[in-house]
Design a protein around this nucleic acid. Structure first.
Lengths: 339, 339
DNA sequence: CGCAGACTGGAAAGCGTTTACCGTCATGCC
DNA sequence: GGCATGACGGTAAACGCTTTCCAGTCTGCG
């Protein structure tokens, strides 16, 4: 079913049919012909051919979203925000999940370029791998040179449009919250060290600690994968080696879920009586954990929405930044320090 | 950067360049020219134009996935499975989220048809709305007539390829598990009644109860939205009206999380001492709830993968069905019936 | 009445690929 | 040596749409 057939059925030219059905508003078509085309399209169940349109217009209505893992609630929330905004603009969202494989981000970005996506949102964290960052930057530059738009969620470089969540100050808030509850020996269950997000959160925590006059003990940081099991293992190791800790900051809620399980089931530690735990992100299930997880709330859906909005705006000459705040939510996993 | 430019740069014809870079194997190109084309492409950083290819080949490498909500872990897991399989086939996945708005599924299916998606996976549950089902069926038929492939996760109709999860027998398993723990007064927190998934789960529970010789009390079913709050509200209403219940089946884990919160915080009921709760789906956080949620495990990732595989196979003349089993996982939210 | 200008409809030139189809040339066989 | 046979390279016609011109028709106005 092609537009030409619709046109013939309606007894008009191809141009007219195009203007009626896909017209970009610049050109009007008379009442009579308009009706004829519309009913012909309806009758023949015409469905326009987006690839052909993309070719002719050299712009499409798909935006790409690259995440680490769709099943992770962190990315789920971001994706939901982005899709909600996409709907308003009648865009389709192509999601690619790298499953945390290093090269895949680059590969998918190329794929999205090939699709002539109008824009791409890089939702996963950047890394400290300079070579990879460089290659990615080149690919992004190439895409932008072709008229594509890119925004990152989380900082990746000064010359990119980004939606920055308050990872640093969030880390600080968490530490400060623990401090105010009387905790003086605070440890951190961290994620993969090469992730910028992790670095920033950790850095915020470190600075806050220093500002409060506490010594920074690098041995009180243990890292694991950004997964439940990673959190569990790291938390168990941390408290086995540093049993004197009374407060633990876990750098992401999924890990925190594992940490709670590990402290309880593997070490028999009561939370919050013996150890207080603070997570990060405030994913939907955080309040339902056992005990309800105190955590640093990040506006994930809002970040997804903001990213999509930003990616559609005309690129300013200067890179744009949207900053989103963090907020400490105290629930049942934190209490006054023991003793 | 077009293929023509690459060809010129390499000093070959457009056809040769196309064969080297995208060739479907039928035609070989000599060693020398092949190398010239490849290095020209590399040098010019050529990226092929997927819409143009889609137009010329009249088939694309994108598959669509329509879900209710990407942020829901149920769909997150399905999506993850589908994307993993998609990666093996070097396909891109376009995800559309309907946010449970009725007409949107149809709209997105049309959108995906317009994109000339090679295939579409309908992951959301069907409904009992006959008119909507009919319109959707027409759209699907149209798509298939154009050579598109569709598979549904969850039953929607006898003439569609489907990946069926054991909703009915899962409902039965849950009831039976409760029964074996001594529960005789069992209630159900149900989801939106128009969803087929809900109907099937409920139906399985009902049949199992009848098979066990228990009366079916329609008043012992309360439904709410398929959300945490929906589950909370329905559970609270259910146990307020039927305080004699000792076992509750909640038809999805997200609702179950809310139900646990409601029973504990709103009604002061101890789980499992006073009431046992069984959820459905076994989403990743189920084991971390408080208490750990007993639930009917469905192989969600596997369903996503199976759907993607199915959608790529040549359509058989007869509709294909993949059946996936359910399994009852007993954790801390269930115990022996009181008294 | 003649004409500028506004509207409206159509013809046709792309957009970047794929893929028949057609030469050309070397090879192997009788 | 003549000729069928492959292998390989190129030419050009689609693929379905958008959009620029161009032409024709109306309108209003001097």
């Amino acid at each position: 079913m092609t537009l030409l057939q619709v046109a013939e059925h309606a007894g008009v030219s191809l141009a007219t049919a195009s203007r009626v059905l896909h017209g970009s508003g610049t050109r009007t078509v008379g009442e009579e012909l308009r009706r004829r085309v519309e009913s012909a399209a309806e009758e023949l169940r015409y469905i326009s051919n987006a690839p052909a349109q993309a070719l002719a217009r050299s712009t499409s209505s798909v935006v790409g979203l690259i995440v680490h893992d769709v099943a992770d609630p962190y990315f789920g929330a971001i994706a939901a925000g982005a899709m909600r905004a996409a709907r308003e603009h009648r865009l389709l969202v192509m999601i690619a999940a790298t499953f945390r494989e290093p090269g895949l981000e680059l590969e998918y970005l190329r794929g999205l370029r090939a699709q002539r996506a109008r824009a791409v949102i890089l939702a996963g964290s950047g890394t400290v791998d300079a070579a990879a960052t460089e290659r990615l930057a080149e690919e992004i530059a190439g895409f932008e040179a072709d008229g594509g738009r890119v925004v990152c969620i989380g900082e990746r470089g000064p010359d990119l449009d980004t939606v920055a969540m308050a990872n640093r100050s969030g880390g600080g808030l968490a530490v400060q919250g623990l401090w105010e509850l009387g905790h003086r020996r605070i440890g951190v269950v961290s994620g993969p060290e090469e992730l910028l997000t992790v670095r920033h959160r950790l850095d915020g925590a470190r600075r806050a600690l220093r500002a409060l006059g506490a010594p920074w003990d690098p041995g009180a940081v243990r890292s694991g994968d950004f997964t439940r099991e990673g959190g569990r293992g790291a938390a168990v190791r941390l408290l086995t080696e540093r049993p004197e800790l009374t407060g633990v900051l876990v750098l992401n809620d999924v890990m925190a879920a594992g940490a709670l399980a590990g402290l309880r089931d593997d070490l028999g530690l009561a939370v919050p009586e013996q150890v207080s735990v603070v997570g990060f992100d405030d994913v939907p299930f955080a309040a339902d954990l056992c005990p309800p997880l105190s955590t640093v709330r990040l506006p994930l859906e809002a970040a997804g929405e903001a990213a999509l909005r930003l990616v559609l705006e005309d690129g300013a000459e200067v890179p744009r930044q949207v900053k989103l705040p963090a907020e400490l939510i105290l629930r049942g996993s934190t209490g006054l320090a023991r003793r």
